[in-house]
Design a protein around this nucleic acid. Structure first.
Length: 361
DNA sequence: AAACATCGCAACCGCTCCAAC
DNA sequence: CGTTGGAGCGGTTGCGATGTT
């Protein structure tokens, strides 16, 4: 049985918004703020559903929205963030003040994807494409969101996120789809790489997969923070996990460190103490990983590089506004770039370290 | 100039999550 | 503990603008 949209059900207006409707919505929200979206249309005198009003406000009418083309900086950040987050547009948008998830999603699908393919990079995996793949990618627009997570444990069994609700495990070149329940639940994926990474460097690896105790704790303790808290605050968010708690392994126990509430997630201005505090937090994370690791692949290293790059890029943005050349040199994924990172000592430490992780899931 | 193809963006749809009851 | 409704997310669609033949 199909579902009817709320607009159809209530015989409400659909389609493009007229300037008059925009004005009504703007006036209402400016006056009364956003309360319950479902009551907004009625109170604002609009023949629309609340959902439609919400979308119109968020994607178009919000005063803090940036307009116009994406800058080169934004482009780079989207690509880098997508490499880590996949199609989690809302989380990507949270790192780009003034941009909406919809806008970024459209920009990705219409422009960035093609750009990467032209550069010989698979937009899904962010890995180099073979010649045949380049042709295939150019010829067919495969909409499947296949995020290969190139993290350590997935070296032998790469994972593909086919969509946000299921994922595949590739074993010996064969894709075997499994429901999220057969694995560890979507939440674990939502913990993002660092969580995944840490879950797998637990000191008591279970050869059959994730340590069930740790996983249970993950599922119990960890969930992405409500993004609503940061969506409209107007402050740029910094730090990789601004909307996601991050965990530490302490004596086999998982404790929660809320990035959003730490100094790392938000900076009102450039401030060196923020750098230090971030670094401290990162070091806690990384040290714990190192304590439980022996070796890291280049993939893992790159991943970590990407992971810790964002906050620093943000800081650099503030610091290097007057020096576009330096700024430009910093972006990207080369090791040289990362060497300039205050966190570079961490990556140096990772070289030659061993990681006994991600045997399988 | 007209017809057709392609592109980009705004908006919609269907789903999940979660809080309230 | 099940149900309900609101909010939000990601995928998809529709349509106007632009380019090409």
């Amino acid at each position: 049985m199909g579902r009817y949209s709320c607009c159809v059900k209530q015989k409400l207006r659909k389609g493009l918004w007229s300037p008059e409707e925009d004005e009504k919505l703007c006036n209402y929200i400016t006056k009364f703020g956003v309360g319950s979206w479902s009551s907004v249309p009625k109170l604002a005198g609009l023949q629309r559903c609340g959902k439609s009003c919400r979308l119109r406000w968020i994607n178009y009418l919000r005063p803090d929205l940036k307009r116009g083309m994406f800058s080169h900086d934004e482009e780079d950040r989207i690509i880098s963030l997508h490499q880590v987050l996949g199609n989690r547009w809302a989380q990507i948008a949270a790192q780009l003040p003034g941009r909406t998830d919809n806008e970024i999603k459209n920009f990705w699908n219409s422009s960035l994807k093609k750009k990467l393919i032209k550069q010989g990079i698979d937009p899904n995996t962010h890995k180099p494409l073979s010649e045949n793949q380049v042709k295939d990618e150019e010829n067919c627009t495969n909409n499947t969101s296949m995020l290969q997570i190139p993290s350590a444990g997935l070296m032998d069994q790469p994972f593909h996120l086919t969509n946000s609700r299921s994922f595949n495990s590739e074993v010996n070149g064969q894709l075997a789809e499994a429901s999220k329940d057969e694995f560890v639940s979507k939440q674990v994926f939502d913990l993002l790489f660092i969580h995944e990474f840490q879950a797998n460097v637990n000191p008591n690896p279970n050869p059959s997969g994730y340590n069930s105790e740790i996983l249970a704790q993950y599922q119990q303790n960890m969930r992405p923070n409500d993004h609503r808290q940061s969506e409209f605050d107007g402050n740029p968010t910094y730090g990789f996990c601004s909307e996601t708690s991050i965990t530490k392994l302490e004596h086999g126990q998982i404790t929660e460190t809320d990035f959003a509430s730490s100094s790392t997630s938000r900076m009102s201005s450039s401030n060196s103490s923020n750098v230090c505090r971030y670094q401290n937090t990162a070091e806690i994370q990384m040290t714990r990983m190192l304590e439980n690791s022996d070796e890291l692949s280049w993939e893992v290293e790159n991943k970590i590089g990407s992971l810790f790059q964002y906050p620093y890029i943000s800081i650099k943005n503030e610091e290097l506004k007057s020096s576009p050349r330096q700024e430009r040199e910093f972006y990207g994924h080369s090791s040289g770039d990362f060497m300039n990172n205050p966190l570079s000592s961490l990556t140096e430490e990772l070289n030659g370290a061993t990681l006994d992780v991600f045997q399988q899931i």
